[in-house]
Computed example of a mutant assay.
Amino acid sequence: MEYKIMLVEDDASIAKLLSSHIEKYGYKTIMVRDFDKILGTFIEMNPHLVLLDINLPKYDGYYWCRKIRQVSTNPIILISARDSEMDQVMGIESGADDYITKPFYYDVVIAKIKSQLRRCYGAFAPDVSEERKIELKGLILYPERPELHFNSNSTMLTKKEAVLAEILMRMAPRAVSRDMLMEKLWDDQAFIDENTLNVNVARLRKKLQEIGINEALETVRGHGYRLNVTWRNM
């Protein structure tokens, strides 16, 4: 299996040397050159691992790490000249799996890449047969991946969509209030616009349609939302 490593580094000389060294070990590197489209490149190329510099134009690596975490659980290793404890804490809190400080030894980078790939895809990867799943009338949610399955169809979710789906599936066919959903999805509701919940509901509704379940996520006027377990219009 050829693993794809996405390299996000705005110093062209470092990026070239790092890419060359990584490819010596049989990995394929994807070098990002448009730093306004990091998330789009990730979604399009679907790499197995991301090496992400913190000091980037416009938005920093912490920002892009959080964006990638919204759509994927694939390993992310941050690279930075910042070596303070707080910077490393911020990296982990942003969703990174590891943190490498510059200047670095290339062999250390390779060792960390190998470690993360083994953990996610190799000998140390979790046993899929033992992972948590929620089932409802043939609809199956794997929260940790996170994925939704129905019949032979499947779709990837963001972290927020997975949390939303789990709450609605566990409560079905009862309705769940908007206040409860916002409390479960966001720690600090004071900075969350209610429209943000609407957007996540709309995205989940679209994901359900993608796997063949139509008009299942219903709006309960004046209250919130519920899953219609009869799976209408299939």
Rank of each mutant, 00 (worst) to 15 (best):
K24Q: 14
Q88G: 00
A190S: 15
G91D: 04
D107Y: 05
R132Q: 12
A202V: 12
K160V: 08
L49Y: 00
D127S: 08
I68W: 04
G222D: 09
W186P: 01
L18Y: 02
F150C: 09
N195C: 05
G95I: 05
R69P: 04
K67L: 07
L157I: 14
T29V: 14
C120H: 15
I134Y: 07
I43K: 04
E161Q: 15
T29S: 14
Q88K: 08
E183C: 05
L185F: 07
E23R: 06
E131W: 00
L7C: 02
Y106K: 07
E147K: 14
A15C: 11
E215A: 05
V89Q: 03
A175M: 07
K37L: 11
L217N: 04
D87I: 09
E183R: 11
I14G: 02
G91Q: 03
N74I: 13
K207T: 00
L164E: 12
P103R: 01
T155G: 10
I76R: 09
V199A: 07
A12G: 11
V199R: 08
S72H: 12
Y225E: 06
I22L: 11
E147W: 14
A165P: 03
R174N: 15
R178S: 06
M234Y: 02
A96W: 05
K137V: 09
R145A: 13
D11C: 12
N151H: 05
I100Y: 06
F35C: 02
V50T: 14
E161N: 10
K67A: 10
Y225K: 11
R82E: 12
P103H: 02
M31S: 15
K114L: 01
L136G: 07
R178N: 05
K28S: 13
S20C: 10
L208M: 12
I213E: 01
V229W: 08
I110S: 04
W64C: 01
L7T: 02
S20N: 11
E44I: 06
V128D: 05
Y121Q: 10
M1N: 10
E93S: 06
V109F: 05
V201R: 01
Y105D: 10
E9T: 12
I77D: 00
A15W: 07
I113R: 14
I100M: 05
T155V: 15
Y106L: 09
A175C: 11
L39R: 03
D188Q: 03
V163I: 15
Y59V: 07
L181G: 01
L227I: 12
P143A: 10
D11Q: 13
M1S: 14
D87Y: 13
N198G: 13
G61E: 12
I113W: 14
N46Q: 15
R145V: 13
I43W: 01
R66D: 00
R66H: 01
K102M: 11
